[in-house]
Amino acid sequence: MIELIQTYWVYFLVGQYPKGPLGGLALTVLLAGLALVLALPLGVALGLARVSPYRVIRWPVTALVFVVRGVPLLMVVFWAYFFLPSITGVKTDQFGTMLIALVVFDGAYLAEIVRAGIRGVPKGQFESARSLGLSYAQTMRRVILPQALRHMLPSLVNQFVATIKETSLGYIIGLTEVSFIAAQINTQVFTRGAEVYLLLGLTYFVLCFGLSRFAFWLEQRLAQRKDLQPLPQPLKASA
């Protein structure tokens, strides 16, 4: 196995770069990172639309979320790969295609996490902000979202971990991310599949486990902050 690593580690890490396009683990990390960074704002926007008081906004987004959640990611990848160029007329490369598919797919899942987070903030917070004269948008931005996003952290991390693993589907459309590279290596040294894929599995594990641990650390730190402590529950009196 040592010999395997010694021979192929550069190929595994960066693909054919710098002689060819960037690939391997670097491409996987780049794809996952970009997908996270782009999917989060999309998820927040879609989540806000899901709780919008306006039906014109709420209904189409609700439909989109349910459609996307109702199909496998692989379908979304195929749509982005075959369908998107036929309507836009622009042929996107594999990286762009995969990024679009991931952002749309994760955006829809994040939207539901955001929606639940917003719904989890007590109604009194909304009422007191509106009573002060803050607009709906100001209330969301200054009062509701800051509380909702902090409570959503564990679910967000879950989704981010899933995103890292989902990048492996880029293999299907020939994106030279780390799984594709592993398959390439396997065909070159075709007797040692177990070792190649064990290393690949370990790589994903380190990435995901690292992110989980980081999130845990962040949670611990946030838990110590006094602005995030749950309020002492006032006595429940009948209205």
Binding site: G124, G133, L134, L231, P234
Partner: peptide, 22 residues
């Protein structure tokens, strides 16, 4: 409505302070 509400102070039974702000 927002300008209108800003001229009326409202105090709730459950206080409803914003917990993330001092």
């Amino acid at each position: 409505v927002n300008a209108f509400r800003s001229h009326i102070g409202f105090v709730f039974q459950q206080f409803n302070l914003f917990p993330h702000l001092s």
